[in-house]
Nucleic acid binder design. Structure first.
Lengths: 211, 211
DNA sequence: CGCGTATATGACCAGGTGGTCATACACTAA
DNA sequence: TTAGTGTATGACCACCTGGTCATATACGCG
């Protein structure tokens, strides 16, 4: 937990620190991210960081949580059940997600960093609240679609949710990476291609492939 | 590329180094993995590592590639088209994969480390050959199933392949992590549960959920 | 003004990093 | 024996790490 000093902090300064931290942790992950670099980039003494947070982990966890809350706030309006068919609605959701990540490299980076964390302790601690947000946002959507008969009555909601929670953060990176003949490029392409590929992805995931 | 010295090396010694490297890199990833620790655990002077490899990255890349080749060699027999129906065959494949990772923590670790790498340079370089192996193993399977009418004629093989390549390495970790009510536990459970969940996963992925 | 409190600072610490290199050793061939 | 070759070694290097702390500064209150 951040110290009281952090909350009392001048908003500009807090923003600078948060910004620098997202950039650095987003590039190099938790263990690779350097507090020296963050302090320098934020224009703040390293010692100050330890006035705001107990230690590096406390710092990282806060940054990660703030970022995911921000992302959730942006996505929330799109989560409301629309009157469009479920598949269409969901495809739109994924498009918004991909576009957001495409236009917010900082958020994309820190999302990647929390997703890619290896250390089990850090990983668990930092992903738990994020997972909760995902589940909380998506489960009602799936359950409602099932009630409305837009998802098969025997669809495995838990499995689907697990797949989505696993999948979505990867769309923050370039999950289907270049250099592979099988690649579906989602980043580094124009918006139209991103949209088309988002559609292919959702269709494949929900509609299945079995004959 | 490993130096000639590495190939001339006494097999025991080479094995010890490889083993220690997989363990260390598997636990802490590329940038977090310590050459000091690897050398100590392998019972080898650190200087020796630099007789075998140009630098840390050369070392890591070789370890990752060896591991993935080993895994591929184990999986290969199961990749041959069986006379069982495709979905059944593929489910079995995933079961074998999950069981293998479950019983080979070293391979699981290094697979996770290559999957979870953040640095784009390292990530690209190290995952490219791995991706090629995946695609090479899975694409013919999918294409054959489509020719045989076991996958829909309009199934998006590229999208499916991309999903699988993204998904499979995560089964090396605990992709559906504990602590979430939505979790499908694949590790830390008995073989029967793992098999059932592998089945749910494959079914959801291929058979779809749309009504 | 003077006092107290909250915060900012960066020199400093012990310890770890990837990487180097002079030296020692083991082995083969003449 | 001698010379040469390939390899093993660990002390050593410059640099970086997360974290500490004495000190300085700024601010609010009397």
């Amino acid at each position: 937990m951040p110290r009281p000093t952090w909350d009392n902090l001048d908003a500009d300064r807090r923003e600078r620190v948060l910004h620098a931290a997202m950039a650095e942790f987003g590039r190099h992950g938790y263990s690779g991210g350097s507090l020296n670099v963050i302090a320098r980039e934020a224009g703040v003494a390293k010692g100050s960081l330890f006035q705001y947070f107990d230690d590096k982990f406390d710092f990282f966890a806060h940054v990660a949580e703030q970022a995911s809350l921000g992302i959730y706030a942006v996505m929330q309006p799109y989560l409301e059940k629309a009157d469009t068919p479920f598949l269409e609605h969901f495809t739109g959701l994924v498009e918004v997600w991909i576009d957001y990540m495409h236009t917010h490299p900082l958020e994309r980076g820190i999302t990647a960093a929390t997703t890619m964390e290896l250390d089990p302790q850090v990983r668990t601690a930092v992903r738990e609240p994020v997972h909760r947000l995902y589940a909380q946002g998506l489960r009602p959507l799936l359950e409602q679609a099932q009630r409305d008969g837009e998802l098969a009555a025997d669809a495995d909601i838990d499995a689907l949710l697990s797949l989505l929670i696993l999948l979505l953060p990867h769309l923050a990176l370039a999950p289907f990476e270049p250099g592979l003949d099988s690649a579906l490029a989602l980043h580094g392409t124009n918006a139209a291609t991103r949209r088309r590929n988002a559609h292919r992805l959702v269709t494949t995931l929900f509609a299945g492939a079995a004959a």
